[in-house]
Amino acid sequence: MKALSCLLLLCSFPLLAETGFQPVSGSEYLSPQMREMQEDDFANPGMETVDYGRELFHRVDEEGHRCAECHGEEGRGLNLARIASYPIYDPEQERPITLQDQVNICREERMDNFPLVYDCKELVGLETYLKYLARGQVIAVQTDGPMKPFYEEGKRLYHQRFGQMEMACFLCHDQHRGAWLRGQRLNQGQSNGFPVYRLSTSRITSLHRRFSECLASFRAEPFLPGSDEYINLEVYVNARGNGLKIETPAIRD
C-alpha cells in the first residue's frame, strides 16, 4: 500500500505538459448510440469476453489452482487502483511489466503453471475481466524514476516514422486529432477502453493488436505482441492517458 501511494505521488500528467491538451477518451468521439451500447452491460458485446475472463479467473487449472484463491471471489481482494497503473516497474526483471505479464508471473510463481503466449485468447480474456473490475479507476502510470527510460523510448517510437507511407502515431493522434480520415474521426489514440470490442471486425482487440493494425494501415511491418517495442509504447500511450478513467470493454468501429 505504501509503495502504491508513492507511485501515485510520483506519476505525472505528461500529455498536458508536453502537448498542451488534456487527454480525451476515444469514447467521446462515439455516436450517442454507440456510447449507449458501451455503457449498457446487456448490449455491450465486449461483455462476452468479460464473462469468459471471469470464468477463467474462477476455474481450477491443471495444477489445482485458481486466481480467486489469492485474489478473492469476483476479485474482491484485488487492488483496483493498482490495475489502473500498469505497466508497473518490476525491480526483479528490471523492466516495466504489463497486466498480461503480471498474470503470467502469477501463473508461474504462485500457480506452478506455464506462462501463456502474449495476447492469446486466455490472457486477453483475463485482462478484459480485470480491467472491467477496475472500470472507473483513474489511470496513473509512473513516468519517472526507473520508468523514465522506458517512457522515453515509448515516446520516441510514438514520434518515429514507419512504413511505406512514413506515418508516425503523433501525426494522427496529436497533430491531426479531431480531423476526418475519410469517414473516420481521428481520436487521441488513448488506451483507457482496452481491450476494446470492434464492431467492424466483431472481435475483442487488445492494445498491442491495435498498434499492429495502425502500423499495417500505413504499410509498416508490425512488431510482435509483448515485444519490448510494444511494451514501451504501452507505457507511453497509457501514461498519455493519465487522469482518464478505465472504460473496459469499450466499443469501437
Binding site: 518515429q160 516514422r161 514507419f162 512504413g163 511505406q164 512514413e166 499495417a216 504499410r219 509498416a220 511491418e221
Partner: peptide, 11 residues
C-alpha cells in the same frame, strides 16, 4: 523508398 523505415515486406 531508400528513406523508408520498417516497411511491410510486400511494399
Amino acid at each position: 523508398p531508400r528513406y523508408f523505415n520498417r516497411v511491410a515486406d510486400e511494399y
